[in-house]
Write a protein that binds this DNA or RNA. Structure first.
Length: 269
DNA sequence: CTGGCAGTC
DNA sequence: GACTGCCAG
């Protein structure tokens, strides 16, 4: 058995243990959390919004998105991720709902049924655990893309967990995520939801002095490579997607940060 | 954590 | 279709 396999099994057992314990202990406590309501985070959530190539930006309490009706999924989902968004509470997964804020009509989850693809969160449920309401809000079909399960539960999940690690370590980062909606793509369901051939993630840390930025581009397939091998410049992601990710930064700073492929400022462990 | 699927009403 | 319970990596 490889060292990696052993680690995976140990990690799974620990998660299982935590899950069981939380489920047993904290059912009543959840309702207190719900009553606490969501924090007003609109200001920070929208500060770094990218441009939209589709003209349909939708804001929710916990994240914003730009919906592509042609592809029946978002071209990007953007949100701030702070320590307070994470918790140990176990929430029961709700059903995916059609996002009524998408005026052109967001996809129905039925498109994904028996498609062979996961309903892959872009703003992960695990990034919105401050309250049941915040958690449930990620279960909108405007927040998902078709993803191969081995990719979603594999290298992509690994990246999402690293993002949570950085959010804690740097006490807040801003995250932009999406599928690359370009080129020839397969489609699933009656509404022809496009299956991206790659997914990207852009992070900016604006809390620790000079802002630092990092971009990832992952082919839509699982991988055993280390995360840093997927680092790309934000410039490359902008050329690939047609999206301007940080128009709010002054041009000189934006140009410098977005051209960088350096990840020395981001601790990978 | 990331998810699907079968059985029931 | 909504909901519960069970399953896998």
């Amino acid at each position: 058995m490889s060292k990696r396999s052993l680690y995976s099994i140990v990690a799974a057992l620990i998660l299982l243990g935590v899950y069981s314990y939380e489920h047993f202990l904290k059912e009543e406590e959840q309702q207190v959390i719900i009553a606490d309501g969501s924090q007003p985070k609109t200001q920070t959530n929208t500060f770094f919004l990218p441009t939209s190539t589709t003209g349909q930006v939708v804001h929710h309490e916990g994240y914003s998105l730009s919906y592509s009706e042609a592809h029946e999924q978002p071209e990007w989902v953007a949100y701030e991720l702070k320590k307070s968004d994470l918790s140990n509470h176990n929430f029961k997964r709700p059903y995916f709902e059609i996002d009524s804020a998408v005026k052109t009509g967001a996809a129905h989850w039925r498109n994904y049924k028996n498609s062979g693809y996961d309903r892959g969160h872009l703003c992960p449920a695990g990034d919105r655990r401050s309250s049941k309401a915040a958690y449930d809000e990620t279960f909108l079909t405007s927040n998902i893309s078709p993803q191969e399960h081995n990719f979603n539960a594999g290298i992509w999940n690994t990246l999402e967990q690293k993002v949570r690690y950085w959010a804690v370590k740097y006490d807040g980062i801003f995250v932009v995520t999406g599928g690359v909606l370009r080129g020839d793509m397969q489609a699933i369901g009656d509404e022809a939801v496009a299956v991206p051939n790659a997914f990207y993630k852009v992070l900016i840390d604006y809390n620790s002095g000079d802002p630092k930025m990092i971009g990832f581009l992952m082919p839509h397939e699982n991988s055993n490579k280390p995360l840093y091998e997927f680092v790309v410049s934000v410039d490359d992601l902008e050329k690939l997607t047609g999206i301007d990710f940080f128009p709010q930064l002054d041009d000189a700073k934006e140009d410098k940060l977005e051209a960088s492929t350096s990840y020395k400022d981001w601790v990978f462990n």
